[in-house]
């Protein structure tokens, strides 16, 4: 895999106006750039990213973060890690499911557990908890209902 600086240079060159912050081995990007960056990684033959391995959310109290781990099955390379941060009051991120089918259930799970809303997801419903459950159990401020049991 190329060094993270080279990937950053390449992305900035091909996608004008993209804001990338390299944080260790990951890129912090704005949600408005997520789809363009993902599409570029998929279509650029030097990366040929075809496999989204892991999508998950983290609640950092001040904000929510969605973490994507991309690999290339064709070139056997990876990972490229993207992180998107959103405010808790407005937890909307564009869905990657139209680009990568593998994100479908994982985005549903991140919605179910952390409460990130993936816009453009074809079927965004709760997947592990039941419909009608009002909370997001993996948020840090969630209080279980039956604490005394």
């Amino acid at each position: 895999m190329e060094k993270i600086e080279e990937i950053q240079k390449n992305l900035e060159q091909h996608i004008p106006g993209v804001e990338l912050i390299a944080e260790r081995d990951a890129f912090l990007i704005d949600r408005k750039d997520l789809l363009t960056v993902a599409r570029h990684l998929k279509e650029n033959p030097s990366y040929a990213i075809d496999y989204v391995s892991c999508v998950t959310g983290v609640d950092y109290k001040e904000y929510l973060e969605c973490v994507y781990h991309f690999y290339s099955m064709a070139k056997k390379l990876g990972p490229i890690i993207l992180k998107v941060r959103v405010k808790k009051e407005d937890p909307k991120i564009p869905s990657l499911t139209p680009l990568f089918r593998g994100a479908e259930f994982q985005e549903r799970e991140a919605y179910d557990m952390i409460g990130i809303v993936f816009e453009g997801h074809p079927d965004l419903r709760r997947i592990l908890m039941w419909d009608g459950f009002a909370h997001f159990p993996l948020r840090k401020d969630y209080i279980p209902e039956d604490q005394d049991v």
């Binding site: 496999y51 989204v52 064709a74 990568f100 089918r101 593998g102 479908e104």
Partner: peptide, 18 residues
């Protein structure tokens, strides 16, 4: 199979060497 992040023997049964 690749598109949907299928892994393991399922993926290899479809002929993807991974």
């Amino acid at each position: 199979a690749v598109q949907a992040s299928v892994t393991g023997p399922m993926l290899r049964a479809s002929g993807v060497d991974y």
